[in-house]
Design a protein around this nucleic acid. Structure first.
Lengths: 334, 334
DNA sequence: CCTTTGTAAGAAAACCTTTTCAAAGCGATT
DNA sequence: AATCGCTTTGAAAAGGTTTTCTTACAAAGG
C-alpha cells in the first residue's frame, strides 16, 4: 500500500499537520522535528497523493496540448518546447493528437475537462465555434498556437505568415525568377493558408509579376498530395522556374516529383519550403526554407497560458514570433 | 464555480447518494427521480470531480509513456498506436520525452508517481537498475517497448532484431553484394545494437563473407553522426558496394555522404535502412528498409500493460512482433 | 509575579465522491 | 396480524491532504 501522510507522521512521531508543514512551509517547523520527518519521508518514499491535493487546490498542475498530427516534425518541435517550459513552470503535460479529426478533438476536450487540466494549448488549426463553445462551457482557459482568432479574444502565439511568405517569394524574385508557382494549403480548413497566399501575391505584384498569381495548386498536409499537386502544377505551367511551398513536406513532394521527371533542383527549378523542419537539413538537396521557431513557440505558448492562469490576464494578446529565411541547396540564381 | 454533486442533489431534490447512483448504477433508482437527476445534471453541466473519484478508486485511469526522442518518427508511430489503444481501453495518456537524459527520465518517473499513473510503457532503451529500482519502489507496473530485460522479469514488446538484421543483410547478399559495411548503434548504451550486429555477422558468415565482419562504424542516433560515420567507413573501405544501416536516419546520412562524394545510390552502392519511418518513402532515393510495425507495437504495449493491470499477469512475457523487408530504390543488383 | 506576545504543533474541518449500512415502505406469506 | 423479503433511499464513513482554529508553552515586558 502506498504510504500516506499518516504513516510518515506515525514514524516521525508527530501529527500529520506537522508533516504537511514540512512539505509546504519547512521554516515553520523546528529543526529537530523537521529532520525526523524528512527522514521518515525518505525512508517510506512518501509522495503526497495528488488526488487529495487536487481536491483542495482545485488545480491539477497539468496542461493539455492539442495537436493535429504528431507525425509532423512541426508539432514535435512544439512539443519539446512546451514540455521544457512545463518542467520549468512546475506543470505536467498531457499531449493529445487529434489526427485532424473533429470528433476526436471534441472528445479530448472532454477528457481534459474530466482530468481537470488547468489550461490547454490549442495547436489544432482553426478555432471553430463548436470548439470555442465547448471550451468555454467547460471553463478551461486556453491559448492558441500557430493559429489565432479575430472573432474571439483569445491569446495566441504565431509567426507573421503573410510577411514570411512574402519574404520567401521575394527571395526567389531577387534570385531572378519570374515564373513562380506555389503549392498552398486549401483555404477552407486552414488558418495559415490565406495569409501565405496573400504574401505570395504581394511579392509578385510588387515585382510586377502579378500574372503569376494563378499558378497555384493546393495540397492537404502530406507529401503524396504535394507530389500530386506538383504534377498538376507543372502540367499546366511547364515554364515555371521556381516554386514556393507552404510546408517543407510539400517542398519534398515537389522535388520528388521533379526528380521523377528528370528536372534538376536547383539546376532547372528552385524550390523553397516553409517551417525548417529537422528533415529540411537531411533531404537531398537540403531545403531552402522559412524557419519558424517551433521550440520557442511551444515555450511561449506554455508561458502565456501560465501567465493567463496565474494573473488572469496576458501582456500581449496576439503575439508574433520571428521567422527567418534559411538558404540551403534547393534554390539558385536564375 | 464548478457544480458539485451537492448542487445536483439540491436541484433535483434528492440525496447525493441518489445522484451518485444515477451516474454509476442507473437501474437502481426509480425512474421519476432518475429523470429529475438527469435533467439537473444536464442543466448544470455537471461533471464528477476526478480528484474525489481518484481518491476513492485509487486509480487515475492514466498511463504514462516514456520515450527517448520525440523528434524521431519511430517514436511518433508508437505514440499514435498507443494513444489509439488507450482510447479504446478508457485510459488517458501522458507522454514524456526524455531527450535521452537519465536524470530527466528519473524525474519523469517521479512525476508519474505523483500523478499516480496506473502504469508506464517504457520505450527508452536500456532498463538500467536505477530505473528498475525506482519503478519498483514507486510500485508502478510497467512494460518495455522495443527493449527487454533478461535480468528482470518484465513484460516486453519488440521485434526480433537479430533476425531482422540478418534478413536485411541476407537481402544484400542475395543481390550479389560481397563487400558490405555497416553503420551500427554503439553497443554500450543500446539494446538493439548487439543483436543487429549479430544478425549482420551471421548473414555474412553463412555466405562465407566473414572477413567483412569488421567493416563497421558506429553512430548515435542522429543523421549528422551517420554522415560522419559513413565518411570514416568509406575512407577505410572504399571497396564497399553495400551498407547495412540500423536506422533509416543513418541510411539517409550515408546516402547524403555518398551523394556529396558523387557516389551513386543505388548505382554504385546499395544502402538498406531499418524501421521504415514515414520519411523512408519520401527520401530520394526511397529507402529499402526493414519495416517495424511501430503503430501496432504501441497498441500492443498499451494492451499488455492493461492486461497486467487488470489480471495481474500477462499471457506472453516477452512478445515478438513481425518485421518485414520493404524493397524500394536504394538497393540494386550488384 | 502577572500579563502579554509570539511560536510551535495538534485537532478538526473542508474538499467531493463512492459505498456500506440502516431504515423505511410495501406486498406477500404464514 | 405478525413476519419476511425486496426495493428504494438517505445518512454517514472513508479516502489523503491542506489549512484554520486552538492550545500549550516560553520569553518578554510591566
Amino acid at each position: 500500500m502506498k504510504p500516506t501522510i499518516r504513516d510518515v507522521a506515525k514514524m516521525a512521531d508527530v501529527s500529520i499537520s506537522t508533516v504537511s508543514r514540512v512539505m509546504n512551509a519547512p521554516e515553520s517547523v523546528i529543526e529537530s522535528k523537521r529532520i525526523r520527518v524528512l527522514e521518515a519521508i525518505e525512508k517510506l518514499q512518501y509522495q503526497p497523493n495528488s488526488f487529495a491535493r487536487g481536491l483542495i487546490y482545485k488545480k491539477s498542475f497539468t496542461l493539455g496540448l492539442l495537436i493535429p498530427d504528431i507525425e509532423n516534425f512541426y508539432y514535435t518541435g512544439i512539443i519539446r518546447g512546451m514540455q521544457d517550459a512545463c518542467i520549468k513552470l512546475g506543470y505536467s503535460l498531457m499531449i493529445c493528437n487529434t489526427d485532424r479529426d473533429k470528433n476526436r478533438l471534441l472528445s479530448y476536450i472532454d477528457a481534459f475537462h474530466e482530468k481537470q487540466v488547468d489550461g490547454i494549448v490549442f495547436a489544432s488549426d482553426i478555432m471553430y465555434p463548436e470548439y470555442y463553445e465547448k471550451l468555454v462551457r467547460c471553463r478551461i482557459p486556453f491559448v492558441l498556437l500557430s493559429t489565432h482568432s479575430y472573432e474571439y479574444e483569445i491569446p495566441s502565439v504565431e509567426i507573421d505568415d503573410e510577411q514570411a511568405a512574402y519574404d520567401a517569394v521575394k527571395f526567389l524574385i531577387d534570385l531572378g525568377h519570374e515564373d513562380i508557382g506555389m503549392i498552398g494549403f486549401n483555404h477552407e480548413n486552414s488558418i495559415s493558408g490565406p495569409p501565405r497566399y496573400q504574401g505570395f501575391i504581394r511579392a509578385l505584384e510588387e515585382a510586377g509579376l502579378g500574372r503569376n498569381g494563378e499558378k497555384i495548386r493546393y495540397a492537404t498536409h502530406r507529401f503524396e498530395h504535394a507530389y500530386h499537386a506538383a504534377h498538376e502544377l507543372f502540367t499546366d505551367y511547364p515554364e515555371l522556374t521556381a516554386v514556393f511551398c507552404v510546408a517543407d513536406e510539400f517542398a519534398m513532394g515537389v522535388i520528388s516529383y521533379l526528380k521523377d521527371r528528370n528536372i534538376l533542383v536547383p539546376g532547372q527549378v528552385s524550390v523553397i519550403g516553409f517551417d525548417n523542419l529537422r528533415m529540411a537539413n537531411m533531404f537531398i538537396p537540403k531545403l531552402t526554407t522559412i524557419a519558424q521557431p517551433m521550440y520557442d513557440m511551444g515555450c511561449r505558448a506554455a508561458e502565456k497560458l501560465h501567465e493567463w492562469l496565474t494573473t488572469g490576464t496576458v501582456e500581449v494578446l496576439r503575439e508574433k514570433m520571428e521567422h527567418k529565411l534559411i538558404v540551403r541547396e534547393s534554390s539558385r540564381q536564375r
